[in-house]
Amino acid sequence: MGHLVTPHSHDSADKTDAALESSSRGMRVLAVSFGVLMVTALVQAVIVGLSGSVALLGDTLHNFADALTAVPLAIAFSLGRRAATRRFTYGYGRAEDLAGIVIVALIAASAGLAGYEAVKRLVDPQNVQALGLVAAAGVVGFLGNEWVARYRIKVGREIGSAALVADGLHARTDGFTSLAVLLGAGGTALGFPAADPLVGLLITVAICFVLRDAAREIYHRLMDAVDPALVAQAERILAAVPGVRRVGSVRLRWIGHALRAEVEIAVRPDASLVEAHAVAVEAEHRLIHDLPRLRAATVHADPDGPDGTDHHTPLLAHR
């Protein structure tokens, strides 16, 4: 009875349908936000050609990069809907983490290109034309990014996709960098032509901060980091299950936008195999229903006693 491992996955039709619907909603968000950001960036690109504003160029490049982040995420959502196989026994949810690496690379590329163009314009100054259009393009960039940010964050939180929420926060930051374009246009209008490339450099710095935050988020996912509050919540849920005398280790990990759990509980030492199994099943059942975004759990039941007895003695050399 010391190794009652009962992986009742709860992969019923309800769970499968919920997972597919989450991915479908994510795909819709990506398609709509891709269209909005591409239109925003194309409008800005036309004005860059008319004005020669390097600050607006930096913002436009960043908006194009932000729109393109929808592509790897869409691929990841599509892969994540595939069933697990004998080779990929946990499914394909990790594709979201790989998409995150691509997103970080795109952000880094936009930062590098924007910085290069700003420094180049400082070394070789050029007049900026159509300042009114430049200012209008900055406003367009802000409005497009803010709308996309709200949409991505709202749906991302509803379906439990950290990648989608992070991408929404990224879009919100992009909106404020778009407003910075107004500073460049205003400075140039007041007779300070260096304002445009200087604002371009400021936008580059802002992109670098976004890059740092995005890289940190992806690093945490790749290292299986979770919010400690989720672990504490899982422990409380398990402790409240009838028949659970003690809660042992609790391990959680994100696989795509779903959580998996591996937990240990202690039951009374004289419980029958059937009784201990029933406690483990109830513990898993409550975890799946009460812990947000949890799709599957494996519960290991140990006898709680007798005192001084170690039921894992054969495994000590392997731990």
Rank of each mutant, 00 (worst) to 15 (best):
H3V: 02
H3W: 08
H3P: 07
L4R: 15
V5M: 13
P7C: 08
P7Y: 10
A13V: 09
A13G: 12
A13I: 06
D14M: 11
D14A: 12
A18I: 05
A18H: 11
L20W: 08
S22C: 07
R25L: 12
G26S: 06
A31H: 04
V32N: 05
S33H: 14
F34I: 05
G35C: 02
V39I: 13
A41K: 00
L42A: 07
L42C: 00
V43A: 03
V46F: 09
V48P: 01
L57W: 07
T60A: 00
L61T: 02
N63Y: 01
F64S: 11
D66Q: 05
D66N: 10
P72C: 01
I75R: 02
A76C: 11
A76W: 10
A83L: 05
A83I: 05
A84H: 15
A84Y: 15
A84M: 15
Y90M: 09
A95K: 13
V104R: 08
A105I: 13
G115Y: 14
G115Q: 11
K120R: 13
P125T: 03
Q126L: 11
V128T: 08
L131H: 10
G132C: 03
V134D: 03
A135N: 05
L143Y: 02
G144P: 00
R152M: 05
I153K: 01
I153A: 00
E158W: 09
I159M: 06
L164A: 03
A166G: 03
A166E: 08
D167I: 02
L169M: 15
L169R: 14
L169A: 12
A171E: 04
R172H: 01
D174Y: 05
G175L: 05
F176H: 00
T177Y: 08
S178D: 05
V181W: 02
L183K: 08
G184K: 01
G186K: 00
A189G: 13
A189M: 10
L190N: 04
A195S: 14
L198R: 11
L198W: 13
L201G: 04
T204Q: 15
A206D: 12
C208T: 10
F209D: 12
L211C: 07
D213P: 12
A214M: 15
A214I: 14
A214R: 14
R216Q: 14
Y219W: 15
R221A: 14
A225Q: 08
A225I: 08
V226K: 11
A229F: 12
L230R: 09
L230H: 01
A232L: 06
Q233V: 02
R236N: 11
I237T: 01
A239P: 04
V241P: 07
P242L: 13
V244T: 08
R246S: 00
R246D: 06
V247M: 11
G248L: 08
R251A: 06
R251Y: 14
R251N: 04
L252R: 13
I255V: 10
G256K: 03
A258S: 10
R268C: 01
R268H: 09
D270G: 10
L273K: 04
E282G: 04
E284N: 12
I288K: 10
H289W: 07
D290E: 11
L291D: 00
L291A: 00
L294P: 00
A296H: 07
A297G: 01
V299I: 01
H300N: 07
D302W: 09
P303R: 09
G305V: 05
G305R: 04
P306Y: 08
